[in-house]
Design a protein around this nucleic acid. Sequence first.
DNA 1: GAGGCAAGGTTTGTATGCAAATTTGCGTGC
DNA 2: GCACGCAAATTTGCATACAAACCTTGCCTC
Lengths: 235, 235
Amino acid sequence: MQICVQSWPAMPHDDPLPSRLSSDVYNVLRRQIVTGELRPNQPLIELDLAERLQVSRTPVRECLQRLAHAGLVVPRKRGWAVREFTPDEIRQNAELRMALEGYAASLAAIRGSPSDIAAIVAIHERRLTLRSSDEEKRVKTNRDFHDAIMRASGNGRLTDAIYHSGQFYFNAPIARATTGEELKLGNADHALIVAALLKRDGAAAERAMRAHIQRTFAVFWRVTGLAEPLHVQPR
Amino acid sequence: MQICVQSWPAMPHDDPLPSRLSSDVYNVLRRQIVTGELRPNQPLIELDLAERLQVSRTPVRECLQRLAHAGLVVPRKRGWAVREFTPDEIRQNAELRMALEGYAASLAAIRGSPSDIAAIVAIHERRLTLRSSDEEKRVKTNRDFHDAIMRASGNGRLTDAIYHSGQFYFNAPIARATTGEELKLGNADHALIVAALLKRDGAAAERAMRAHIQRTFAVFWRVTGLAEPLHVQPR
DNA sequence: GAGGCAAGGTTTGTATGCAAATTTGCGTGC
DNA sequence: GCACGCAAATTTGCATACAAACCTTGCCTC
């Protein structure tokens, strides 16, 4: 087969099983769902997908099972369709991220090794020197920053869950928005998080991370023009 | 086919796709993994499973994809094996639950409807009247209690994530152990959570829930005889 | 002209076929 | 007795086959 893996915006949690076709199919379909190339509620016809990707139905079906488990695809009476995310579900996901990344930040502050913390600080400082025009680098260092904190938490399950939740931001037109303005605003928030980490103050780190994610999503609603659901602010 | 669905301890998040064979297979295999009937690291031979369950390899393969995505099964160079959970991974999962259920409790306190809260209180009080010998009812009301809080959080994504994480507690011999002593200690913890919910104090509810889960796992280590990993206490 | 029924075409859900790749077992040589 | 290597037997990964369920469409009837 010749699944055309053109270069695309790096995405977290690509899931390559050791040399298995269904894994390539998974990554391609996930990207197409997540970027909106496959529209919400669009029915997914196995044979169509198989022909487009030059594989048989078998890997496609296996991949659909995983997408369904990931929550990106929903079962219909017959077959599958791309899941549609309502604004409320996006809010719910933001809250999920606040729970997970907030806790990760708290663990990082408490038990991250000195070199873990140093790595986070380094990423933060590198980020401060970026020219505002270099969007790609900003996206990357932002991800690096959050990744480094997760890693410092010393909890792989938590990290997995965060990656998982990350699959939900991107649904058209979310991808563009979350990589756009949000990133310009982040530095002040990041500085607060870094300060808490350096003080080894878990509670402060958790608060700062939650506030950061919440602010990010406030931007998101504005940029996308979606109506912000009520109760984004839990406390 | 005649997958023998004998009565088993109720498990969260049975995942029945609308009338699909692979879904029954999924629930059976998940249970067998989680109860230890299928041992950690045991290779899963497709044809074996298919014959045991009286289905063909196709639904088995699809089900394995979902189990892999759930993290209960890991890919080998060739085929799959039951994932082995180390004590450290179990600790990580406990922390994940603390993050998720703690946040759910906080949301429930802040925005749960009066009837949501009343339902939680009712479950708690029913639970107080149970005879300690009635183990099955205790297990059930415990689950009801946690479920009701999740529901009161008004966040389905969070709820899903909690259910998901729930798949990991039970690995032999966990299931039996968690129905024993833990439950006796639970009532006092539950009372603290209920009090915070009634006061609509999100931060207190979150603290109480985290402490409850942590205590549960402290019991777990003792009962199972596994070595408790360091750093269970994050603050 | 509208509604219902039926027939045909899709599309799925499951089963099976086939070749490749890995593992197992045995024999041989050291 | 141990190690190495070759061959046979599993067992997978992918493809395809087949029947049942479903949807569409067109025709017939009222």
